[in-house]
Structures are given as C-alpha cells and as structure tokens.
Amino acid sequence: MPPRPLPIAPDLLRAVRESCLEAGELAFDLFRPGEKTAARTWAKSGGSPVTEADIGVDTFLRIRLSALLPEAAWLSEETVDDAQRLSRRFVWVVDPIDGTRAYMSGSPDWAVCVALLDEGEPILGVVHAPACEATYTTLRGGGAQKNGIGIAASPATELDGARIAGPKPMLDALARFESFQPVDKIPSLALRLTRIADGSIDAGLISTDARDWDLAAADLILREANGRLSGGSGEPVVYNREIPIHGVLIASCGGLSEPLLAAMQHLRDGQPQRI
C-alpha cells in the first residue's frame, strides 16, 4: 500500500510559513543590526553560544508546529533529543536561529529554519531570514520560492569564475587546484544553500559537523531550485539518523555538481589530511 499523502499540504506550508514569520518577529525584537544583541546569551555544554531568542523561538515553534501535525516527532538544536523520532513517519526538524553568532553580532545572515521529514526525506521547507527580508519556501515537487516568487539556481557549468562560498581553509585549499571566485563565508548554513537556490552564488562548501537542523529545509529548497547537496564524494545526504551529524558537504547549482565533485576528489588526492 503506498504511503498516505501529507494532509492538505499547501495549507500546511502556509501555516508553517506564518509560524516562521511570527517566530522571526520574536527573534527580531532582540536583534540589533550592526551591534551586539539585546538578548541574554550563554554557552551550551559544548561551548557553542545560545541566546534567549533561540530558546523562545524554539518553544514557540514546538507549540505551533505540534498543533499543526500532532503525529510528527521533533528534532531541534535547542531541545533534548528524543529517540522516538527514529520510529516516526513524520519529523519536524527545526533550527530556531541558524547563525546564532551572526545574530549575536548584528549580522543579518541568520534564519529561522523548519523542515518536515517523511520517512527521513524532506517534503516541506521554510527558511525565513527576517533581517534580510527573505523567506524561502517549498513543498517537494512544487518548486522553490523566495518571497512568493519562483527561483532557480544559476546555469553555471564551469568552475572558472563560479561564485563559491565556504570556510576560508576549504576555499584556500580548493584554490590550489581550481580557479573560481571566492565569496565571503555566509555564517548561516541554511542561507548558504538558499543563496545557491536563488542564483546569488553558484556553490558552497560545508565543513564537517553540520546537523540535520542546519540543512534539511534549505536542502529541499535547493533541490526544488535545480541544485544539489551531497556528501564530499557525491553520496546522498541522509536525515533522521540516530546521530544527525554530517561530514564534508558540497552544494551547487545542478551544472556545477560534477565539476565540483571532481575538484574535491582532486583536492583529496593532492591533500590527504582532513580539510
């Protein structure tokens, strides 16, 4: 028997989008463009920063999204993980503020991210960047939109001149083998992907340790805009595993996928240590 379809999917996407817009307003109240945030901040057990805005948005979205689809499990950066998600068909994957350090410092490059997984596959995604006045949305098979207008990744097919974002050590290593146009690091991984989706840049590199909540919503947006996210050797990205952590990832417009994968292979062959 085929899986039942997601109930009233367009209505659900609209409701999720509205929830993200409201969540963005909560975070924006404590955001200070170009200045340190007004939110209280502290370090989590692993040393990464968190703010009261992260926690407030997480709580708001859990209440709102759980009401929209009660049978869905929950995976979020700011909530203790619950193993029951591994046996659920639907899972909400949430990053209340992707790019917390950017948010804390007054950079606009942060976003509220929500994805819905169906058997581990993203089927709905919203990435809302209030300080950039950009809201990206998608349903699987329905194309990708930015502020309600359809978007598509760039038609680039050659690395020469391609605009590539990522951590400086990775870009510097790649530049030893390839000619391209480096782009300043985009601190939000979700925005790094969505800016490939809307054609602002052509590709992006992601170092190890990205989490599902950094990627899932933007991954679907990128796919629906004719782009691709993969592991460093071209393997598909798998979500809702027991440990939702990823290795090196490569994102690009469709035409750059193979050239960039080949370049990364060349890089690994010429520089065996981890980058």
Rank of each mutant, 00 (worst) to 15 (best):
P10L: 08
R14D: 14
R17C: 11
L21H: 14
L21G: 13
R32T: 14
A39I: 01
T51Q: 00
A53H: 04
D58R: 06
F60S: 06
R62H: 07
A67H: 14
A67F: 13
E71F: 00
W74S: 01
E77L: 08
D81M: 11
R88E: 00
V91I: 12
V94R: 11
P108N: 01
D109G: 11
V114I: 13
A115V: 05
D118M: 10
V126Q: 07
C132I: 11
R140E: 15
R140H: 14
A153M: 03
D160Y: 07
R163P: 02
I164Q: 07
G166R: 03
K168M: 09
R176C: 09
P182R: 05
I186H: 03
S188M: 08
L191A: 05
L191C: 02
T194M: 02
L205A: 00
W213E: 08
L215M: 11
A218C: 06
L220K: 08
I221K: 01
E224T: 04
A225M: 07
G227R: 08
R228Y: 05
G234I: 04
E235W: 12
V238R: 09
E242G: 10
H246D: 06
H246V: 07
A251V: 03
G254L: 01
G254I: 02
G255I: 04
P259Y: 10
P259N: 09
A263K: 05
H266P: 06
L267F: 04
R268D: 00
